[in-house]
Design a binder for these strands. Structure first.
Lengths: 227, 227
DNA sequence: CGCCTCCTTGAGACCATTCAACAATGGTGG
DNA sequence: CCACCATTGTTGAATGGTCTCAAGGAGGCG
């Protein structure tokens, strides 16, 4: 998880805080916002990485494709998350808005300029990269060794931490997105969720099947073996 | 890939160079060496990360275990590679010597002390972490979406780049290690290698089956779909 | 020589996938 | 307001790729 930022002395949080900067200490770095419609591309794989992004609202998927269309989603980015932070010149994933999404953007170049003489910023870039690395390492274990039920359980536990509000988890992503994140097919994901429902571990709430209530987190955690 | 270091004015390369340091500019950082026997643990998951390591000779596997013993190898570390570089206080993998392995070690703390006031070193830490992240991202695609033949092909291509000498690739790791790296069973790996042999894409050389010659890199690359 | 480890190969089982049908939702336009 | 259609999700049946179980061979080492 990215470290939540403390609201500054003005009582207003901004994305620069995530990098260890405040607006006034680094007036060079310009901030702007942009809103993407559901399903639109934010950047493509191998495009030059001009900006770094922070999700203000909405949800984003980052993925790689094989030549024949098989897709692997590497991460979902939710409110507060920073993504598109590449050390290299070009993006290593394609990023798309899952639902209508507003992002803050920062020019990568200006960030680098600041990092070049500010150790606090440099340190935070390392810390964010390490967070991504840690997530990827855990995900390799899931993709390489877990069963479908374990994967779906792990997914629910992750999303529960990240977006449960008032006991309800409103998933922004489709079954296909979940499947491509977990290395499964959408049918297998659906079956696993049905099974968890039968087991009384979760309940469906709204009219859609994307609103889930976790009824038994203990049993759910038990299904996902820990490392 | 880690950036190869230039041998210094003394004509002698050392591991500090990888971090952007030379021995004389940073006499604080002590270097020592240690040799691990085949199969011995270098550090365990969740152990406190006291040292950072560089492989001088030999080979190391980094892995995570599930409670029931299922294993996922996240990376192999070969001569020149740096591993055990954690931003957090504890290791996220268990590291074991695959064969007799000599490593150079650096106290993590001394490295951090230097990084705290040396931007070049801080930048190199970020660059190394990014390299690991990039590898993990590519490996997620492999584990989530590739077939067994594609995985083995990708593995051979990776190892070919890293350890082929005089046309011969001498794999230090067993079929089980390869399987746990690729999210397969050792039997499936063996069958895939046999198939590649039948197809004339590779040949076995020595008395053991760990020495491989790639006969048709073009066809091999064709089997592993690119992203 | 005998034992151990590692690798290969075969046969059958199983979990996830594929293919298919159907239900439910939401948006659109008459 | 409702019929229509596209999208999304569920479920069933059959297939198939990988795993499991098993046997046998080859090399290394005491």
């Amino acid at each position: 998880m990215l470290v939540r930022i403390a609201t500054g002395p003005t009582g207003r949080a901004n994305s620069l805080g995530e990098f260890g900067m405040t607006s006034d200490s680094n007036p060079i770095v310009s901030l702007s916002e942009f809103t993407y419609k559901r399903g639109t591309e934010i950047y493509g794989e191998k495009e030059s990485a001009e900006y770094v992004y922070q999700v203000k609202s909405g949800a984003v998927r980052s993925y790689k494709l094989l030549a024949d269309g098989r897709r692997q989603i590497g991460a979902f980015h939710l409110a507060g998350d920073i993504f598109g932070l590449e050390n290299s010149a070009s993006h290593r994933f394609t990023a798309e808005a899952i639902i209508e999404t507003t992002v803050r953007l920062i020019r990568r170049q200006s960030l680098e300029l600041v990092a070049d003489h500010d150790l606090v910023v440099a340190r935070n870039l390392l810390s964010m990269t390490t967070t991504s690395l840690q997530h990827a390492e855990d995900h390799m274990l899931l993709l390489g060794r877990k069963t479908s039920l374990e994967r779906v359980a792990a997914f629910l536990i992750e999303m529960d931490k990240r977006l449960t509000a008032a006991g309800i988890m409103a998933l922004p992503m489709s079954r296909r997105d979940i499947a491509d994140y977990l290395g499964l097919t959408l049918e297998t994901v659906s079956r696993a969720l049905s099974r968890l429902h039968e087991l009384g571990i979760l309940g469906f709430i709204g009219s859609t099947q994307r609103e889930i209530v976790l009824l038994d987190r203990v049993q759910l955690a038990h299904l996902d073996l820990q490392s």
